[in-house]
Design a protein around this nucleic acid. Sequence first.
DNA 1: TTGAAAGCGCTACCAA
DNA 2: TTGGTAGCGCTTTCAA
Lengths: 360, 360
Amino acid sequence: MPSQSESAESRSKQASGVVSLRTLSAHLGLSVAAISRVLSGSPAARSIPPATQERIFAAARELNYRPNLLARSLRRGQSTSVGVLIPDMSEGYSAHVLAGIEETLSAAGYVLVMITHHHREEVLAKSERIFAERAVDAVILVGTTLQLYGTTPTVTVSCPDPHPHVTNIVLDHARAAELALRHLHGLGHRKIAVIKGHPVSSDTEVRWRSIERAAAALGLPLPPERVVQMDEELQTNEPGYRATRKLLGQSRDFSAVFAFNDVSAIGAVAALQDAGLSVPEDVSVMGFDDVAFARVHRPSLTTVRQPLHQMGVMAANAVLDQLSRSGEAHTAAVEVVVEPELMVRATTMSAAVCAVAAAA
Amino acid sequence: MPSQSESAESRSKQASGVVSLRTLSAHLGLSVAAISRVLSGSPAARSIPPATQERIFAAARELNYRPNLLARSLRRGQSTSVGVLIPDMSEGYSAHVLAGIEETLSAAGYVLVMITHHHREEVLAKSERIFAERAVDAVILVGTTLQLYGTTPTVTVSCPDPHPHVTNIVLDHARAAELALRHLHGLGHRKIAVIKGHPVSSDTEVRWRSIERAAAALGLPLPPERVVQMDEELQTNEPGYRATRKLLGQSRDFSAVFAFNDVSAIGAVAALQDAGLSVPEDVSVMGFDDVAFARVHRPSLTTVRQPLHQMGVMAANAVLDQLSRSGEAHTAAVEVVVEPELMVRATTMSAAVCAVAAAA
DNA sequence: TTGAAAGCGCTACCAA
DNA sequence: TTGGTAGCGCTTTCAA
């Protein structure tokens, strides 16, 4: 009824049907400020009587009020959004990590600003602009060479370049290589071939160095003719297939193949079979990552499991943690190391062992 | 040098280091309005001399100016963001569609506001609030029962409920069923078992009805004992494995299995093999979707291909199309029908056929 | 050709 | 306990 409110109401473009604080203000005869305090859960709301608060909540519900987060973000200087830079999203590795990130951050009310770069330099360069324009509160990089975004809190997953102000979630690569090679060694393998990743993959270098060290520790030689590198970053089995063909051309003097990841391991199995070898009877194959189809594939794939989903969750939590105490001194460099796990399946089991396992 | 600019400068919180139009204004001695016109590519910029424009661009580059899209969105009443509601993102189907959406929309300067609902009712309900608060310009629903978001332009992919104002990208299910059954029929199969999808999957009903019709047209009976339904929505091979076990318990009188999707087809292959049957010698198996591992799996999976990536691209383009002519009358209901494609691979080839194919 | 100013919806400061 | 109001950074009329 207050005519003053009426005029405020008509001044606004209510024809558009958007319910703002002004709409509620006119409806309730209360100030915009009071309503904002109550609905945004501001600490200042404590000084407003419960009866009034209830009236405000009721009106908000009735008129279906939605705060405009763009306006809130502009005012508060934070957008409750997090930038995510990832090579790809339609393949296993990224998808698992991304799911963990998404789940955690959206539960906390955040929204993702996702960029998939497909390892293209121009997209990486553009990412800074996009994140800045959208005013993301933080950035998560997955499997990507480090990009720095000024003072924006940054968390990385499996990024090769450590940096004093960036939290990095990394696998214990030394342990991973040890698990894999020790397992093969334990099965009696002494001549092990290795498929290195494509140079563009962020884990390629560190993985290879870890394998070299673990092999040396076990006294396993890694002569050049038993090492091949993938010629493409494609997330299909083809690069692994081709790499294994090349390997077979260089040498047949090996009894096990340690592939860069699961998808290339599947390609390796196919190439070995096409060459008339059987897996695991003639050659054992070991994958890496434990993506969904590693278990599903026949023969099921022995692999070193990276807890990818959990790594996504950890990255998201690291972001939330940094954002929650953004007033404090810059946190020291953190490297969160996660543990790999050996998943023993059919591709490293002899037929006899398989039968026993199936019976169990 | 203009002291007036100086004061404008100092009034602002330049200590924060954020370069806004005001910063540029102070730097250049030009009005905020003029700079905005030039940098935002407004048509009004044509009335500004090239020399001045160049000066403005130079300063923007030099000071690394980034427009604040939050502020722009607030002012313009559109956010250049699109909401995407999807069951899951870490499995094949959604990931392929999502990749197409992401690729297309991010090339157009849009950002996604993604919600994964995992078929949980409360998340679906919450989605409206999230999209409204973030002021998305449009919404894309993937494999989800229709949600209506007021006047927000909406495009759906594989959604069961047509609606007069919603563009729906759908597969030609009749054609898909016909392709699959005709192929099996052509191989001589007369007793075909079917694994129906879980009731929660948006394609389950329409897929089943199409199969019934195509089977009738070919004179193929579908007795209840040769039909099973998946008991879970999980995107692993397990529901398909269990369904096939159940099927084998009900009947062994079939020579082919048409699974609901690729992942359940893989489960079916495993279950058949575990029951001592070989694929495709004893039983042929047909999948649906053609996700990445259908080709990679051994035996490789014959399947009905949905152009999932392309469907994502089409959905994104439909959104862009609607947004570009938002002044015009509401476009009529559109149903974009995409064509399935039969991918013949090993699981429906007899050993003899396989050998021929491998030689080719 | 350029600038002043209103205002998008919100929050937070300062008064009352 | 409540309200007025400045202002986040931007675009866009309206004037000059």
